[in-house]
Design a binder for these strands. Sequence first.
DNA 1: TCAAAAGTGTTCAAGCTACACCCATGG
DNA 2: CCATGGGTGTAGCTTGAACACTTTTGA
Lengths: 237, 237
Amino acid sequence: MYTYEYPRPSVTVDIVVYGYDGGKQLKMLLIERGGEPFKGHWALPGGFVDLDEDLETAALRELEEETGVKDLFVEQLYTYGAVNRDPRGRVISVAYFSLVNLQDHPAVASSDATKAEWFPLNELPELAFDHSDIIKKANERLAAKVRYQPIGFELLPAEFTLGQLQQLYETVLNVESFNKRNFRTRILRTGILEEVGRQQNVAHRPAVLYKFNQETYKKLAEQRDGGVLRRALDFEI
Amino acid sequence: MYTYEYPRPSVTVDIVVYGYDGGKQLKMLLIERGGEPFKGHWALPGGFVDLDEDLETAALRELEEETGVKDLFVEQLYTYGAVNRDPRGRVISVAYFSLVNLQDHPAVASSDATKAEWFPLNELPELAFDHSDIIKKANERLAAKVRYQPIGFELLPAEFTLGQLQQLYETVLNVESFNKRNFRTRILRTGILEEVGRQQNVAHRPAVLYKFNQETYKKLAEQRDGGVLRRALDFEI
DNA sequence: TCAAAAGTGTTCAAGCTACACCCATGG
DNA sequence: CCATGGGTGTAGCTTGAACACTTTTGA
């Protein structure tokens, strides 16, 4: 038992993991809760933070314990602390956000306690706690992020075609289709893609395979953060 | 005394408040700590979250208690939870972010316990805890925010000239000077400014005074969030 | 030889940048 | 009448959007 002079909340982490398999839908990793509250409901992976581990460490640990998915980059999303968000008492949850490609992280371990599953984004079940709020915010973050960062780093396999990249963007931004010509021009102009070969055995003209050049990307990102603004003001209003 | 089956961290809030007075420097609101740890050091306003109040409520309450500043909009910034960030034990802090104009919030109450003061951003003292990390992140957020949101809503008095608005942007983005012509064109094109009069008694051609039109801004923001993208992809890299 | 997807050339309009210039006021 | 900051016209270039077209492969 642990005793304190003032009352303290519990602190948890929840992780929103998006997966992409090349199709027209992103997927999200959910678990079925094995215990109360919300037993039997689907929820985001997550759990209580140990006192001797950082928040991000806790997120990765819980994710692996509950779903078997590991070795991914997470980014903090938002912290949820409404007084009554958890029937067990005051629970403050730090939400994390991650992108993975399903080729690298297909295995979803079903431990004895929990069942884990990838759901298409437009077919999510009803969720426990305020997890649908968290997902809503994560969706907004993703849509914003895709505008200024090459999310393909994480969502696509190491080598991919421009067609796959375009399909991914159309999926994430939920648009019919970009103009192929313009998409290619813009992406290639950035210089963050590097040719690595050609497709084999496809029933059409084989596409050039590309990989992301992390170094070039970092240089460009530094320039941006260093104040070399392409436009003085954007007012993307 | 409060007893729990598992150990729990303490949870605090910290608030980064930027103030603007029309000059070439933004200011930040800091308090001098009256107790240990870091007694006598400067720090962000903040404190422990009560179990029956939301996080944002706690942030506003602590801010008013410590500095007398109230009635402002805050936005969540980031949550800091490194294991050893506080010598008192495991303390997780949810940081908030706010913009105010110093005309409306000049009074900085010095309660018996704490001293509060506005510091120019480039003359900040050494800070307690990991508060300089928090401020660094807040600065990044501010620089990003200014690109896509009219921060003048909060930082300027109700009526202002385009010259003042431009001075603000130059201050926040830390650039020498924008081209006046282009700045005016871009801002006015958005339609979020509304003429409300003219300057009086100035030793030069009196400028038109503007105010922000919140309604027009909301409409535009909804359009943007609703998917009407001005450009398909930005890659502001 | 056909279907399918990759990949290119080019036009037109919109937007950004830069520079030069005029305007109104108080001292 | 001048210093000061407000305010405007416009040329030249860059970028974005759109469309039509050619290329390469396996079946």
